[in-house]
Design a protein around this nucleic acid. Structure first.
Lengths: 362, 362
DNA sequence: CTTGACTCAGAAAACGTTTTCTGCTACTAT
DNA sequence: ATAGTAGCAGAAAACGTTTTCTGAGTCAAG
């Protein structure tokens, strides 16, 4: 049915071997005459190689397995997209399996992927290391992206949370705030530890006070941001700037501030973290630290292809720096907003917010 | 290196054939004694089949190709997740390729997937049909999910937009609204035509007036919802209920209403469409029509596996009905909100919104 | 001339399965 | 008794490649 090497061999009169040598780009010498005839015939017959047969023979499949916690987690799609964009360029495909945050399912996923023809595996966000031995034994390289738990490890690419926190806090400092609070995430997430350090270091460098009153712990959810801000607002001297560990908690904080009769940013400034989609369609637009998720995926893909090429040589953890997206919750001049390379998915809110007085002619 | 059938054959003393027959679950009769010994040996050696070899022989790969427009489109991840959840249950994996809304890239994607071992292809959201002949020729089944353009086609699963629009408009009717407006999307999207019909039919059935003043066309973006609502607000008799074609335009409309000094839902009620994530964290929570995206993916997966099993028999287009998620922008009693099976990703806003009077003891 | 090296084409083996084909044994029905 | 038939095990072919091995021809150096 489908056309195979043999068909081309028959049509051109050359042997299977030569045909294969031409079509697989081997660097075995083949005369130009023959090469051309074979290529022509392949083209006209519409030949395409049977990948199963090829990979049976070569033990390479040009496919990468991706184990994600859940394709619905907010960062997973952009990370995966970053990976795929690089892979497709190099003629690799990707097989995606969900682990659902469950060690058992993860292990099953790994087994499945190893059995299948994949040349390597990339883990996104979550990864118990329970079955790492299976992996090691398989001799296939593996790389971790945005790993959230556990200690640093080779072959992983993570965001630079320390740097990100410094960006956020420095922004508040630059705007003149001297009472700066932080709503942290759960302690066992290692990004929280790094951001905490960034927060404290930045305060210290600017000779600003660190007060435990101004440090609250949330659980990433909107309600915890609300509750944290509420507590701070009851203090005799409440903070004038709040750095929240993620955008959801920032939003919760904003709601709490508004409910107490104060305004954002006039009374209290708020910075979020993550640059989630909704931060750009809220009023006021939420100033936040952008996670370079696509970039992280790309780097992970680069690493794994390099390791497949050169044969598994562990590489150091690489950290990727994000950037600050200035919107409205800090009251900083908007100008900076356009300076950021715009995410094509974000929506320019210019029109919307220049509309209020109804006479602003742009 | 890795253990293969031959190793088990050697260890147990049986032939390759028998070992294979046991391990591939063939229904060829094998004595129980032998079966057990082989299974035991396979287990202890840690055998796992070489999929490349198997699929070379059987021409089946237990892998489905998924062509998506862009993994970052809002509905794509949940649709894909729905597909994958069903596939993994049936021991199938999925290979995902992005087409970036580009016919050429889509064609490249199809070629790549056909060459690769996939047993069928599912198209998500977008699909030019330019290269459908290649596909047909390959004899591999293909199914479309949530196809946005072009005329209805076999082997596709789409949301029931007519039904969804009726849900939304009926809700406004039930709340007593008599002047109901509709912000439609671009004409060339066929879901807009269906929703339009749902809107008009529902009005007619309830003997409510249809006025072209109350019909505006947007482009799905937030600004177009804002502009549409603004126009309506300038009318001598503005509508008291607005049905927006998607959540972003609904949000734009809400902003416009608020900017004009009116309140949602007290003065004007708003219903969105899509049940995007942000509708649940906004204040007021946006009442909207939920798109059954995961379900659609699941059904698509069912169809394609069935067709692989039975050998390509075209099936009719199937329509999936969504449901109404009642939140706050229509002022309906909240009760209904909990009745919906909660999406695990959405956040209960109960706490947040029962907080205002500060004495509500739940 | 002859020899050795080099160039390139073809034959054949190999990758790890599944499955068809053979054939042996043991039982059943005549 | 004997032919026919299940029931089951093993040999071997096949899937479509890549790659090693073999060998024929050409050319340059002695």
């Amino acid at each position: 049915m489908t056309v195979k090497l043999e068909d081309i061999a028959k049509e051109t009169g050359f042997s299977l071997s030569t045909v294969s040598r031409v079509l697989s780009n081997s660097n075995y010498p083949v005369s130009d005459q023959i090469r051309e005839k074979v290529l022509h015939s392949a083209e006209s017959l519409g030949y395409s190689p049977n990948i199963a047969a090829r990979s049976l023979r070569t033990d390479r499949t040009e496919t990468i397995g991706i184990v994600v916690d859940d394709l619905l987690s907010p960062f997973t799609p952009p990370i995966v997209r970053g990976i795929q964009d690089y892979l497709i360029e190099k003629n690799y495909l990707s097989l995606i399996v969900n682990s659902d945050w469950d060690p058992e399912q993860e292990q099953a996923a790994i087994r499945t992927l190893i059995n299948r023809p994949v040349d390597g595996i990339i883990f996104v966000e979550y990864s118990h290391m329970t079955s790492d031995d299976i992996l090691k034994q398989s001799k296939k390289p593996r790389v971790f992206v945005h790993r959230l738990f556990g200690s640093p490890i080779n072959n992983s690419v993570v965001p630079d949370d320390y740097y990100g926190a410094r960006l956020a806090v420095s922004h508040l400092v630059a705007l003149g705030h001297e009472r700066i609070a932080y709503i942290n995430g759960p302690e066992n997430w290692h990004n929280c530890r790094a951001r905490m350090k960034g927060y404290r270091d930045t305060l210290k460098e600017n000779k600003l006070p660190f007060r435990t009153d101004w440090l609250q712990r949330g659980n990433w959810e909107i309600e915890s941001g609300y509750a944290a801000a509420q507590k701070m607002l009851q203090l005799p001297k409440h903070p004038t700037g709040i750095f929240a560990g993620n955008d959801l908690m920032a939003l919760g904080a904003i709601y709490a501030i508004q409910d107490s009769g104060l305004q954002v940013p006039n009374d209290i400034a708020v910075v979020g973290y993550d640059n989630r989609d909704f931060t750009n369609i809220f009023r006021p637009g939420i100033t936040t630290v952008n996670m370079p998720v696509g970039e992280m995926g790309k780097v992970a893909a680069e690493i794994i292809l390099r390791q497949i090429e050169t044969g598994q040589k562990d590489e150091e953890e690489v950290k990727i720096q994000g950037n600050l997206i200035i919107r409205e919750t800090c009251g900083a001049p908007e100008m900076d907003r356009t300076r950021q390379g715009p995410d094509p998915r974000t929506i320019s809110r210019r029109i919307l917010f220049n509309k209020q007085p109804e006479e602003g002619n742009d």
